[in-house]
């Protein structure tokens, strides 16, 4: 991988770099470190499986790519047995894929149940430094531990749909709180209006102000509205300094992940866990 190719966002080089990011954390950090920082935005897309996240990303990413360089990271779960994975999000992203303007990369969660694998943090940083301005990350699906997507993203879209039937569960699990913008997809299906109203009343009750947009990800209806809302939200956050906070948080988590893998590596080379803990305790005492 030639550094200039990476800087200019040459797809083949970036693609190979992403493989490095996924397979070798140490090499990944040095590769990322060799590239200058750039400004980029991470848009997290989460929601239950079957709500239409991928079909929505299929349209949404095209809107973003009209404005600036866009990449999509689509995460699917790894199988717990031998660690294989079935990565099928591309099936629903033909439109984005055929636009010729969007880099789509499928990633397996690699053992991180319901969350994001550490390499996703590196992957977005790499893509950002390669000149991708908008990076859309589609999660596995809503799980209890979906705070990761909040830590990763500058803005999170929670996708819901009528007839999936677990929005009550989601409210209970506190997942409803992670959305910055709510999308009720499959707006043509009976029950979409009620679902939107229910979300509205739950949000009102909690005194939370959020936009709710109804979309049809099969025909693309209202996706542009969602795009406009996202751009507006990103601008607002940029001005209020919130984006800088998210960047800071993302960086910290990435560093933490690095520290953790360094510890793990040290441990595997025979450094005793007690010694590691002692170090940490000493640091804590020193303040």
């Amino acid at each position: 991988m030639n550094r200039n190719d990476l800087l200019s966002g040459d797809e083949l080089s970036v693609s190979k770099a992403l493989t490095v990011v996924e397979s070798d954390r140490v090499a990944a950090r040095s590769l990322i470190g060799s590239l200058p920082e750039r400004e980029y935005y991470v848009i997290g897309i989460t929601g239950s499986s079957g709500a239409g996240k991928s079909t929505l990303v299929n349209w949404l990413s095209v809107s973003f790519s009209d404005a600036s360089r866009t990449a999509v990271l689509a995460i699917d779960p790894s199988s717990p047995f031998k660690g294989g994975a079935f990565l099928g999000d591309r099936i629903r992203m033909n439109r984005a894929s055929r636009s010729g303007k969007i880099l789509i990369r499928s990633m397996a969660s690699r053992g991180m149940v319901g969350g994001l694998s550490p390499s996703v943090f590196d992957a977005v940083e790499l893509l950002g430094r390669c000149g991708y301005h908008y990076i859309i990350v589609e999660t596995v699906g809503v799980g209890q531990a979906e705070t990761d997507i909040v830590n990763l993203s500058d803005v999170v879209v929670l996708v819901l749909a009528p007839g999936i039937g677990d929005e009550i569960q989601m409210m209970k699990a506190g997942i409803m709180e992670i959305g910055d913008i709510y999308t009720v997809n499959k707006m043509d299906i009976h029950g979409a209006d009620q679902l939107a109203n229910r979300i509205r009343s739950v949000l009102d009750l909690a005194d939370v102000k959020r936009e709710i947009v109804k979309t049809n990800s099969l025909t693309g209806t209202n996706v542009d509205r969602l795009y406009q809302l996202l751009i507006g939200e990103l601008n607002r956050r940029e001005k209020s300094g919130k984006i800088e906070e998210s960047r800071q948080r993302r960086r910290e988590i990435a560093e933490l992940n690095t520290a953790f893998s360094a510890l793990k590596e040290a441990h595997s080379r025979g450094v005793k866990l007690e010694a590691i803990m002692e170090c940490i305790n000493r640091l804590r005492e020193d303040g």
Binding site: S79, K82, G84, A85, F86, L87, G88, R90, S106
Partner: peptide
């Protein structure tokens, strides 16, 4: 084939 390769520990990108 996709199922078998996944079960063999590979990451299978299925295009449809």
């Amino acid at each position: 084939v996709a199922m078998a390769l996944r079960d063999a520990g590979m990451e299978v990108i299925y295009t449809g």
